[in-house]
Nucleic acid binder design. Structure first.
Lengths: 349, 349
DNA sequence: TCGCTTCGTCGAATCGTTTCGATGAGGTGG
DNA sequence: CCACCTCATCGAAACGATTCGACGAAGCGA
């Protein structure tokens, strides 16, 4: 493996000159420059990352802490990982995957050993111990998703604006004529635990109902598909049933759709269903009008926040304070494609 | 940040002594040992990874090259990434995610800069240019999946034994009484391209048919769900239709099941469907008797192959030759859970 | 021609660890 | 009492890059 010394010898200059040619941090004559670059090409020289890091104490590596609740794996996490890696490369960073079941230990190791310059923490729980540990260690982090815990106000994070997302779904349904809309919210336990996205989703439903002057009936969903399906049945079994259904909790979505079909609702014409969140690409579900989790935008934003906190990005207008906490609520968008069907004419039922 | 010098001073020894305590590569008196370890704890000392790597030229990092065909992302890749990371940690390695759209460039960069000691290449294409590039550079790699390309015989790889997998599905169906079994194989273009898994799956179906003395009707699947559904219809529209269906191509599986339901087949009783491969966890499909891609076993095996090739694992009986090519075909297993239903009695149709 | 600035390049120190050979204290046998 | 060996520890030399100050040559005005 060629070193900077080999390049220097081959081009008849000092190692420092090679370094200056490569970094461009000092002026070098065009002639010398050309000779050095030729030697670099000839030898296939790559600077050793470890030497560079040792000297500069910057690794150009971003750690990515993947949530690992006992063997569980959410399909969307893989997409986030890939998108974050892409975003990091744009800024010259590589991504180190951290799947340590004890997230705090793994992060301490990576931060302490200088393997990474910053970390992105995915799917942050309320009062996440990882946040506290990294804040205490002075290690730059950015969070994907957020709760309402106090320590998180000190730390940059990115999240979808769930309130705006559910509100948008309701508003769009109202816009094509729906006057009574059902909202299958997050699961019971998520609401009970006062998870941010659960509360914000509910708030969005209520706000949009008020603003658009439509009725919104809310029922919590459940992780148990059977229970979720039952809730849908309850939503529909009234004198004046809703004509559209907005769904925030997508785990039992297939079963919800199956339940609708089974009870004689013809999809999508009889009852437009609008999921808010992420439908796995390979789920085989029909195309629905929907609001997707903006994975790409979230990944780009959280990466930039983490690198800014690490002082690796020049301050911009959007993100002026290097190292300071910044929060970004991303604006939801309707997925292009299937529009929300208007309600059927009164005689339809 | 504490360095080895700080630890040395605090415990009143030389830096080298601290190093010996930590690595255990020389005998140190119990008393000194205790004093050093106490200082390490007190100062929260972590060895700087870059210094260690610079000195030893081993990074303890495994690069993971994720396939990136133009924006596509397969859900199973994320699971592989997480499982490989877990397996690497067992051996003290971290995983660097490589999502560079130009896989060769990314690998060259990581290999050349010494960021990683070895690489795992996912979803290898026939005559993958990455394999040739890394072989030429003398960089240790292991492949997840394999083709029949010649250069791959020189490189370690891991794959599911697709021939055995399809054969197992057919054999199990035969064992519960099915005499005529349909096999929806890989897609046309995969067979035409002579992809290993496609050919091996076909071979397995034929072999099991011979050995079990049953009839197997084969039809290629298609990436287009409509075409795939049509193929299924063809399979069933005969005088003596098959009583079980083995499916290797799982992308259009939801549509295949929908087609069956639509044409009056009651699942799973009328016609057991046995997928061979990976069904996404969140697909909402019913429980089926199936043969899963053994993601965990494949990840562990490919990680060990890569690290062995890097000389980072002691040679074992199973993997005796460090650096030499090793190939592992993993034995398929029926997923625990739903068994294959026996054929309905003759009067059923 | 002298002194001063500018330009391009060099030498040396530095980052933090590992590891090889050296060193001194203490023990043992002749 | 001396020679020798073992044992625990130390000092110094790498590893390969970056970067600061120095330095000679050339250019310039006086």
């Amino acid at each position: 493996m060629a070193t900077i010394k080999d390049v220097a010898e081959r081009s008849g200059v000092a190692p420092s000159t090679v370094s200056y040619v490569l970094s461009g941090s000092r002026k070098i004559s065009e002639e010398t420059r050309a000779r050095v670059l030729e030697a670099v090409r000839d030898l296939g020289y790559h600077p050793r990352a470890s030497a560079r890091t040792l000297r500069s104490s910057r690794s150009s590596v971003l750690a990515l802490a993947v949530p690992r609740e006992a063997g569980k794996y959410r399909a969307v996490d893989g997409r986030f990982a890939v998108e974050i890696s892409d975003a990091a490369r744009v800024h010259g960073f590589d991504v180190l995957l951290m799947t340590d079941p004890d997230g705090v230990r793994g992060l301490r190791r990576v931060a302490g050993s200088g393997l990474a310059d910053a970390a992105v923490l995915m799917a942050v729980e309320e009062a996440d111990p990882r946040v506290a540990a990294m804040t205490a260690a002075g290690f730059p982090v950015a969070l994907l998703g957020h709760g309402d815990a106090r320590d998180e106000t000190e730390v940059p994070w990115v999240d979808l604006d769930w309130e705006a997302a559910v509100a948008l779904a309701v508003r769009q349904a109202a816009a094509v004529g729906h006057r009574h809309i059902a909202f299958l919210s997050s699961a019971d336990h998520e609401v009970a635990a006062r998870r941010g996205y659960a509360l914000h989703g509910l708030a969005g439903a209520h706000r949009a109902a008020r603003e658009a002057g439509v009725e919104v009936t809310v029922r919590p969903s459940s992780d148990d598909p059977g229970t979720a399906a039952a809730r849908v049945r309850e939503l529909l079994a009234t004198d004046r049933p809703p004509t559209a259904l907005v769904v925030q909790h997508l785990i039992p979505l297939p079963q919800v759709l199956a339940e609708l079909t089974a009870s004689g609702v013809r999809l999508p014409d009889d009852l437009p269903v609008v999921p808010v969140g992420t439908i796995p690409d390979e789920s085989g579900l029909p195309d629905l009008p929907r609001i997707d989790l903006p994975v790409g935008r979230m990944a780009a934003a959280v990466t930039e926040l983490a690198l800014t906190a690490a002082g690796a990005l020049p301050a911009t207008e959007r993100r002026p304070v290097a190292g300071g906490p910044r929060h970004e609520l991303l604006e939801p968008r309707m997925a292009p494609g299937v529009p929300i069907a208007p309600p059927r004419t009164p005689d339809a039922r």
